[in-house]
Computed example of a mutant assay.
Amino acid sequence: MSRIRVDEDILPLSEFRAGVATFVKQIHETRRPMVLTQRGRGVAVLVGVQEYERMQGRLELLEEIYKAEEQLANGEGISHEQAKSRVLGRLA
């Protein structure tokens, strides 16, 4: 994801409402997120669909890594040799 450009990518919600199509096009073309503000405070971040899906994929991978680390910390893991043996057994 590209970095937010403060001068272009942060705007009031009222301004966004007035030109939704233009801003959606901007998000698609620049591949940068857009921060919407209300009363001077950030209230939402808009990202393109592809970027959202990429972020979701990364989050799922991180969740799996954290789960695996927890399992290892609880002594639930298996050795490399055991894992290798299981995988090769299933492939045979």
Score class of each variant (00 low, 15 high):
residue 1 M to R: 05
residue 3 R to G: 10
residue 3 R to Y: 11
residue 4 I to R: 07
residue 6 V to L: 15
residue 7 D to C: 12
residue 8 E to V: 09
residue 8 E to Q: 14
residue 8 E to M: 14
residue 9 D to G: 09
residue 9 D to S: 10
residue 10 I to H: 06
residue 11 L to A: 09
residue 12 P to R: 06
residue 14 S to C: 11
residue 14 S to V: 15
residue 15 E to S: 13
residue 15 E to W: 06
residue 16 F to G: 05
residue 16 F to N: 05
residue 16 F to V: 05
residue 18 A to S: 13
residue 19 G to R: 10
residue 19 G to I: 08
residue 21 A to I: 10
residue 22 T to Y: 03
residue 23 F to D: 01
residue 23 F to L: 03
residue 23 F to A: 01
residue 24 V to K: 01
residue 24 V to L: 10
residue 24 V to P: 00
residue 25 K to E: 04
residue 27 I to M: 03
residue 27 I to G: 00
residue 27 I to V: 13
residue 28 H to C: 03
residue 29 E to D: 02
residue 29 E to I: 02
residue 30 T to G: 01
residue 30 T to C: 01
residue 31 R to Y: 01
residue 32 R to S: 03
residue 32 R to E: 01
residue 34 M to Q: 00
residue 35 V to L: 09
residue 36 L to H: 03
residue 36 L to F: 02
residue 36 L to M: 04
residue 38 Q to A: 07
residue 38 Q to P: 01
residue 40 G to W: 05
residue 41 R to W: 03
residue 42 G to P: 09
residue 42 G to C: 07
residue 42 G to Y: 02
residue 43 V to T: 08
residue 44 A to I: 07
residue 44 A to P: 01
residue 45 V to L: 06
residue 45 V to E: 09
residue 47 V to C: 05
residue 48 G to T: 07
residue 50 Q to V: 11
residue 50 Q to D: 15
residue 50 Q to A: 11
residue 50 Q to P: 12
residue 50 Q to I: 09
residue 51 E to L: 04
residue 54 R to C: 07
residue 55 M to C: 07
residue 55 M to S: 14
residue 56 Q to E: 14
residue 58 R to F: 11
residue 59 L to T: 12
residue 62 L to P: 02
residue 62 L to R: 11
residue 62 L to A: 10
residue 62 L to E: 12
residue 63 E to T: 05
residue 64 E to I: 06
residue 65 I to L: 07
residue 65 I to F: 03
residue 66 Y to I: 06
residue 66 Y to A: 12
residue 69 E to D: 13
residue 69 E to G: 00
residue 69 E to A: 04
residue 73 A to L: 11
residue 73 A to C: 05
residue 73 A to H: 08
residue 74 N to E: 15
residue 74 N to G: 05
residue 75 G to K: 01
residue 75 G to L: 00
residue 76 E to M: 06
residue 76 E to D: 14
residue 78 I to C: 02
residue 79 S to Y: 06
residue 80 H to K: 15
residue 80 H to P: 05
residue 80 H to L: 13
residue 81 E to T: 06
residue 81 E to Y: 09
residue 82 Q to R: 13
residue 83 A to P: 09
residue 84 K to G: 04
residue 84 K to I: 06
residue 86 R to K: 12
residue 87 V to M: 12
residue 88 L to M: 14
residue 89 G to M: 09
residue 90 R to N: 08
residue 92 A to Y: 10
